[in-house]
């Protein structure tokens, strides 16, 4: 396709949301660098990106899940539990690689429960995934307690933190590399695989997808399992980097993830959305909360903003995409 005026016009029309996000990002960055000198520093940017990395790793999978019209509220708990489990296993003599493998498999098990209640039984995901939110969080505290304290921090093997602090090629923190890998993987799934195509089809019209012979239950279930796996990986990564496993981490992470995805232009009802949009959404979430801290604005205004975004996006959805949907 050649780049002509029409093509650019068309792109501007279809990609408005991304353009707005990029604009917001630029305005935020300029504003913040003028307002606070500490904003434009390597340390600060590393911090923002480390926060964004966790959101993006999980959201890349959760984005495709939301494209099918579903979501997962248990990712924060699964992350916390996986971090604790990994630290516990390593501390008690399991080799690190083995411990990671076990943790990933258990994380996928959490996803399996969600897959069963939502995809197979067809229960509303808001309620269904809350079951796992409870149980995984409870076990996170319990395992930490079995270890003998509120957190697991002492007695971890030396290699434990090495993994999290590893710099790939000597410069890139592992979290950033994993973020890029997760993004690349889901860009690839979105653009180049059957699963990606089917996810959009399921979100756009579940009935037509079934009549076209698409295994709708299987794909939704698979995505739940991948989301949980990525939450588990993030947990391992975060625990390793900090060198400390705490059971109360990542509370409310699920909402960071959902808001990043919605900001990125994915409809909660499914059918539209993109991995790139989600990345931009996550950056806006990351820089916005960083900005709040730097400007000394209490974090809780963010909560209000999240609520407004959630309800607002659905209202807009009702107004604009519904005629197209019907």
């Amino acid at each position: 396709m050649r780049w002509n005026v029409d093509r650019i016009k068309h792109l501007l029309q279809t990609e408005t949301q991304k353009a707005v996000l990029i604009g917001t990002l630029i305005v935020m960055m300029i504003g913040l660098s003028l307002a606070t000198p500490s904003f434009l520093s390597v340390t600060n940017f590393t911090n923002v990106f480390l926060k964004v990395a966790v959101i993006v790793i999980i959201a890349s999978a959760a984005n495709l899940l939301m494209v099918t019209g579903h979501f997962d509220l248990s990712v924060g708990s699964v992350l916390a539990f996986s971090g604790i489990l990994h630290a516990y296993l390593c501390k008690h003599g399991v080799p690190i690689e083995m411990s990671m493998l076990i943790t990933c498999i258990v994380a996928m098990g959490w996803g399996g429960i969600n897959a069963m209640t939502v995809a197979v039984l067809g229960i509303n995901p808001v309620i269904a995934t809350v079951g796992v939110l409870f149980i995984a969080r409870g076990f996170a505290f319990l395992v930490a307690r079995w270890d003998g304290g509120a957190n697991i921090m002492t007695g971890l093997p030396m290699e434990f933190v090495d993994f999290g602090r590893e710099l790939v090629f000597g410069i890139f923190p592992l979290a950033i590399v994993m973020m890029v890998a997760a993004l690349a993987l889901f860009l690839f799934i979105e653009k180049r695989t059957e699963i990606g195509r089917f996810a959009y089809a399921i979100g756009a019209n579940l009935q037509a997808a079934k009549l076209s012979g698409i295994n709708t239950v299987g794909i939704i279930a698979l995505l739940y399992v991948i989301v949980a796996l990525f939450a588990g990986l993030s947990g391992i990564l975060q625990t390793s980097r900090v060198g400390l496993a705490a059971p109360n981490v990542a509370k409310g992470l699920e909402f960071d993830v959902i808001v990043a995805i919605i900001l990125g232009g994915t409809a909660m009802t499914g059918g539209v959305g993109s991995t790139i949009g989600m990345l931009l959404g996550a950056l806006v979430v990351g820089f916005a909360s960083n900005g709040l801290i730097l400007l000394g604005i209490p974090f809780y205004y963010q909560s209000i903003a999240y609520g407004v975004i959630l309800i607002g996006s659905l209202m807009l959805n009702q107004r604009f995409t519904n005629p197209a949907r019907a």
Binding site: I135, R137, G138
Partner: peptide, 12 residues
């Protein structure tokens, strides 16, 4: 913490 876990199991 068992309470949290039990609540989750009861819910499911």
């Amino acid at each position: 913490f068992w309470q949290t876990i039990i609540k989750g199991v009861i819910l499911i």
